[in-house]
Design a protein around this nucleic acid. Structure first.
Length: 760
DNA sequence: AGCACGCCGACT
DNA sequence: GTCGGCGTGCTC
């Protein structure tokens, strides 16, 4: 392909008073107008970073295009100081996307742009070439970890990671994932297990396509790939929803689509929920496309981030694989955007610019004229509705690769199958029912592996006073404290506060009962009931960092662990052929959450975790323990009935006027003083209700009401919810609200959350 | 975000 | 009598 050198899209400026629209990298709303000095006339291109006088001092700004004189009189227009680089940092399709995001999510454009740029470019400095001309690589020389590494767990972990990502990876990247990996890999090199290579990165020089490309596709994969190739050949924007059951080989379809885009000289952007949980997927991209891939994970150092940004911007690297924020990656000549596990809640950013990367992917595809491919085994209801409306095209893959059967899913009704009979509910009351224990025992005896899923970390999820019935709560938040026995602490999962375990009730000094089950306790119970099994736990507590996650997953993949107990972290897209049994310890936990998406989340989670079973040659089995066997998500998961669940849930959403049939915007308030916060909430509520469009438009205001978690970090929380038939129906109201926010006293923080993810 | 301006307590 | 607390307000 021709590497673009960004011919400057020069804006013709006619002297004397050419004006420029600039987004200032400060949390101020709107675009600012500056005078283009004669020295710069003809040298400005949209997307360039500029220095502008702002207030007292100087600020970083982004030139967006010519401006017309501001409407108000008496504004003293100042001149742009200077341009920070010749070739614009932002490609034009990104400018359009960022403008859309700022407008849609009601966030200052300058901040949106600054947040999208790598740290090296978001400060008011001249662009520096972050060009580590040589990059160090480690290459595995054997395909299996040799037994002599048993005695060197640190080296084994580094080696396992290297194998997991395809046998060849930049040293930097391994070192990010596993601390001390740099030294470990050097030791491994002296043992002759690893070769260290230096690679000089030159623009335009690439490795050929590497190995690992299966020749045979399943018939369904073949249909999907051909169809996507045809769409790419036809060119232009289109969104395709790839609905493929777990284990149907969606990743290979992504790879082929990316390959095809590459053959057309086009770049690709691939979004995944979490890099740490998907080393296998990253490895496949790396081994297929070599150094044509930039992997954008959360742990990149500033220099590395800048390096990748520049390589993508120049077109020397044409594929970006990354998490949510990679949606802003400056992929040149974008032909394809893939969003893997498009239903995943982690694509929604929950602070600052509250964007949804999946939705932005569709917008970006539209602006760049690219194909957008959304993939999932359990598509979001929003996406299904978009298919029904004809906005997205649907591709389905209903069978697993190699004709492997879907796992059988069985119910264990906890109301009937009491784990151990009767007695008072104490902390010793077991949670693993006889059938579940039996299945686990059998599986482990056969040398196969088990995943135990429970969506709650800690040991006991609440402490209840046996005498006065009070539960132990966080002093700063309106939630119960969780007992973490391994840390000998009670912890607040919302504010992070950890304190020693109280012996007795604070109020009446009565004894405390440890109730509610968490992963820590399940792990202990497995260890006790199946002493022969090697048990490990994977949750946010055991996996203190991304590296520990990788390590644990690698150990599980090497079959050094028989039973893996964990939270959602075990449910994501892993591919462990040894896993033949998946146990859901309690399907009910996510049902009780006061959120209109609770059922959908539960269904997604259960389906995803069930999908971990039977991915190898042996068939899989799933056991689901629940107190609510009649709940819709549980019943439908049991029957492998995604369509049925979706239909039912969509009907319910329509009846209650929730997305995807309406659009929402949440207005969240947070303040030190309960009365002040409440009064601001009422004030905003009145403001909005006085400005509601006529009832025929169908916009409704819910609240103000105390948030489900009414107090967090000592702050009182309120919320209001706007519902409308379309986003366009809500937008004017949100714009007016935003103006009104100027009148809110500084003691209360108000944020607007457009298309909110969760209602908490 | 900065960085002012602007009205009320402990110091030379 | 000043020096300075950080509460509100503006930045083309």
């Amino acid at each position: 392909m021709v590497v673009s050198d960004h011919p400057a899209t020069v804006t013709p400026v006619s002297s004397p008073a050419a004006l420029a629209s600039v987004a200032v990298g400060r949390p101020v709303r709107g675009e600012f107008t500056y005078v283009v000095p004669e020295t710069l006339s003809g040298r400005l291109a949209p997307g360039q970073r500029v220095l502008v006088p702002f207030g007292r001092g100087t600020a970083l700004g982004f030139f967006l295009g010519p401006a017309s004189p501001p409407a108000e009189e008496g504004v003293n227009l100042k001149p742009i100081h200077r341009v920070l680089e010749e070739s614009p940092s932002l490609p034009t399709d990104l400018i359009a996307l960022l403008r859309f995001a700022a407008e849609h999510y009601r966030y200052p454009l300058g901040e949106v742009i600054r947040g999208a740029l790598p740290p090296g470019l978001s400060k008011a400095e001249d662009e520096k070439e972050a060009r580590p001309d040589v990059q160090h690589f480690a290459v595995a020389l054997v395909a299996e970890p040799p037994p002599e590494l048993r005695r060197a767990p640190a080296q084994a972990a580094a080696f396992a990671y290297l194998l997991a990502v395809g046998g060849r990876a930049p040293l930097d990247e391994v070192a990010h994932a596993i601390p001390g990996a740099r030294e470990m890999l050097k030791k491994l090199a002296t043992r002759g297990l690893v070769r260290l290579e230096e690679q000089v990165l030159k623009p335009g020089v690439r490795e050929g396509l590497a190995q690992g490309r299966p020749e045979l596709l399943t018939p369904e994969q073949d249909v999907a790939v051909k169809s996507l190739q045809a769409s790419l050949d036809a060119g232009g924007f289109q969104t395709v929803l790839l609905h493929g059951v777990t284990g149907s080989g969606k990743t290979e379809v992504y790879l082929r689509a990316v390959e095809h885009a590459l053959s057309q000289g086009k770049g690709s952007l691939v979004l995944v929920p979490e890099i740490a949980l998907t080393p296998q997927l990253v490895g496949r991209f790396r081994s297929r496309f070599g150094s044509d891939v930039a992997v954008l994970h959360s742990g990149l150092k500033d220099r590395e981030r800048l390096f990748h940004w520049q390589a993508l911007r120049k077109g020397t690297v044409r594929i970006a694989v990354g998490v949510r924020s990679a949606i802003w990656a400056p992929v040149e000549n974008l032909g394809l955007v893939v969003v893997d596990e498009e239903h995943d809640p982690s694509f929604k950013q929950e602070d600052k610019l509250r964007y949804n990367a999946r939705d932005m992917a569709v917008v970006r595809g539209k602006q760049a004229g690219a194909l957008v491919l959304l993939g999932s085994a359990t598509p979001a209801l929003e996406s299904l509705e978009n298919v029904r409306k004809g906005r997205y095209r649907l591709l389905e893959m209903k069978h697993r690769v190699d004709d492997r059967p879907m796992p059988t899913i069985e119910l264990v009704d906890l109301r009937v199958e009491r784990p151990r009979d009767g007695g008072p509910v104490t902390e010793e009351a077991p949670i693993l029912s006889p059938p579940m224990l039996e299945a686990m025992r059998e599986t482990v005896e056969k040398g196969q592996q088990v995943i135990l899923f429970l969506n709650r970390r800690g040991h006991s999820t609440f402490l209840l006073c046996e005498v006065c019935g009070l539960t132990l709560k966080c002093s700063d938040c309106d939630v119960c404290l969780t007992l973490h026995r391994s840390a000998s602490r009670v912890m607040c999962h919302y504010c992070g506060l950890a304190t020693p375990v109280p012996e007795r009730c604070r109020e009446c000094t009565g004894p405390l009962l440890k109730l509610g089950i968490g992963t820590e306790r399940v792990e202990a119970e497995v260890a006790e009931r199946l002493p022969q099994a090697r048990v490990a736990r994977l949750d946010r507590d055991s996996a203190t960092s991304a590296e520990r996650v990788t390590e644990l997953l690698a150990a599980f993949a090497r079959r050094e662990i028989d039973v893996l107990v964990g939270t959602q972290m075990v449910a994501k897209g892993h591919d462990f052929p040894g896993v033949t049994l998946v146990c859901v310890v309690m399907a009910d936990t996510s049902l009780a959450i006061p959120d209109f998406r609770a059922a959908e989340r539960t269904f997604h989670l259960l389906t995803q975790v069930a999908g971990r079973a039977g991915r190898g040659k042996d068939p899989g089995r799933v056991l689901v323990q629940t107190y609510n066997p009649d709940s819709e998500p549980v019943k439908r998961v049991l029957a492998h009935d995604f369509e049925g669940f979706a239909l039912q849930e969509l009907e319910w959403r329509r009846a209650l006027a929730y997305p995807p049939f309406t659009r929402l915007a949440a207005i969240r308030l947070e303040g030190e003083h309960p009365e002040q916060t409440a009064s601001v909430a009422r004030m905003l509520g009145e403001f909005l209700s006085r400005r509601m469009p006529p009832p025929s438009v169908g916009v409704r205001l819910l609240g103000p009401a105390l948030a489900p978690i009414a107090r967090l970090r000592g702050r009182t929380r309120w919320q209001l919810l706007l519902k409308g038939p379309t986003h366009a129906a809500l937008a004017p109201l949100l714009a007016r609200l935003e103006m009104k926010l100027e009148d809110v006293p500084s003691g209360v923080k108000v944020t607007i959350d457009v298309d909110p993810g969760a209602m908490l």
